[in-house]
Design a protein around this nucleic acid. Structure first.
Lengths: 102, 102
DNA sequence: TGCCTATATGTCAGATATGACATAAACTAC
DNA sequence: GTAGTTTATGTCATATCTGACATATAGGCA
């Protein structure tokens, strides 16, 4: 099993804000995953608040429904870049992005 | 001239915090560039505070001197991902990353 | 039950980012 | 001056991410 895959699976067993000390993740890797999950959740919340479907968000963000699903799932194949761009496309300000991370 | 190149050049003419309404950049694109420059500056500051050379930072971050230079220059070829990973590798906490963005 | 809409998962070709390298430019200190 | 150190820039093969597509799963609701 590849490391990226394993880490994804590990991370997903945990609820938000609790990707704890787990196996061989370094502190940086943990911080990175937490940060990504925070953005992921922020995206989900934003979509929920606007009552949009993933298909609608995909249109706004200029991507596909499947990628939106992966973004919200914190899939390792999605970059922070894409999450941030998506949040901005949904109307978030840099300040709000920062708030999501912190 | 390619769009990415042009945007980079445009962005570089401005001092921090002032990538203003400029030509055909959409608000999201502007926000994205500002956000990247913020991280870029944060990285520079961190390196300065620690009195490290780019070569030393490259070693810590596991990349090359040239990429560190590009990161600090806000080069369009560097992703937010890499900037964030680098900040974390230099000991920044997610909170500090957020602070840099806001 | 079947039908419809929403979300999740797997895959892949094409696009973009990456580290590494060479080399240039900018600074110091001699 | 020039030798040494640091930072900037250009390029490129490989790695990684991306959108799109197919398909699966889940949740209504008649």
């Amino acid at each position: 099993m590849k490391a990226t895959k394993r880490k994804k699976l590990e991370a997903k067993g945990w609820k938000v804000g609790s990707v704890e000390d787990f196996l061989d993740l370094t502190p940086e890797e943990m911080a990175y995953i937490e940060l990504k999950l925070s953005l992921s959740n922020s995206l989900k919340e934003r979509r929920a608040k606007k009552k949009l479907s993933q298909v609608e968000v995909a249109k706004i963000v200029k991507t596909s429904q499947s990628r939106v699903a992966k973004m919200e799932a914190g899939d390792p194949s999605v970059s922070i870049d894409l999450l941030v761009k998506s949040l901005l496309a949904l109307g978030a300000s840099p300040k709000e992005v920062a708030k999501a991370i912190a």
